[in-house]
């Protein structure tokens, strides 16, 4: 497969200029997840409103363009979503958001924020 196609302008834009990078004040949920094999790290912070919907989300982290842009893109798509919505997110949902073909070796990078997000929401008492 062609790796250059994976690094398209959208992916690189989210990597170089992430829209959701930073720290939230008084987040309700914080969760850090790392990919032990390659050392990629993301920490997702979220705020919930009274209806248990995500009102804001940010991340800090370091790693490859795939893991970091995937996190940024995912956070763009969780605001206003309920915890139940997030529990239903799966691999295909992320890949559709990214809009690129990911080689098998890099799938773990793309899915790191999904693992982080799903583990984070498990921390919420239902």
């Amino acid at each position: 497969m062609n790796a250059e196609a994976m690094y398209n302008e959208v992916i690189l834009d989210h990597y170089k200029y992430p829209q959701n990078f930073g720290k939230l004040e008084n987040p309700n949920i914080v969760h850090r997840e790392s990919n032990t094999l390659c050392g990629d790290v993301v920490e997702i912070q979220m705020k919930l409103n009274g209806e248990n919907k995500i009102s804001d989300a940010k991340f800090i982290g370091q790693g490859c363009a795939i893991s970091q842009s995937s996190t940024d893109i995912l956070l763009n798509n969780i605001k206003g979503k309920t915890i139940e919505n997030i529990k239903n997110f799966d691999k295909d949902f992320i890949l559709k958001l990214l809009g690129i073909e990911i080689s098998p070796a890099r799938l773990k990078c793309a899915l790191l924020p999904l693992v982080a997000l799903k583990t984070a929401v498990q921390k919420i008492k239902s």
Binding site: E4, C64, S103, A105, R106
Partner: peptide
């Protein structure tokens, strides 16, 4: 450029 991205390219 992260080394994983380099290796992929």
């Amino acid at each position: 450029i992260h080394s994983h991205d380099l290796a992929t390219i």
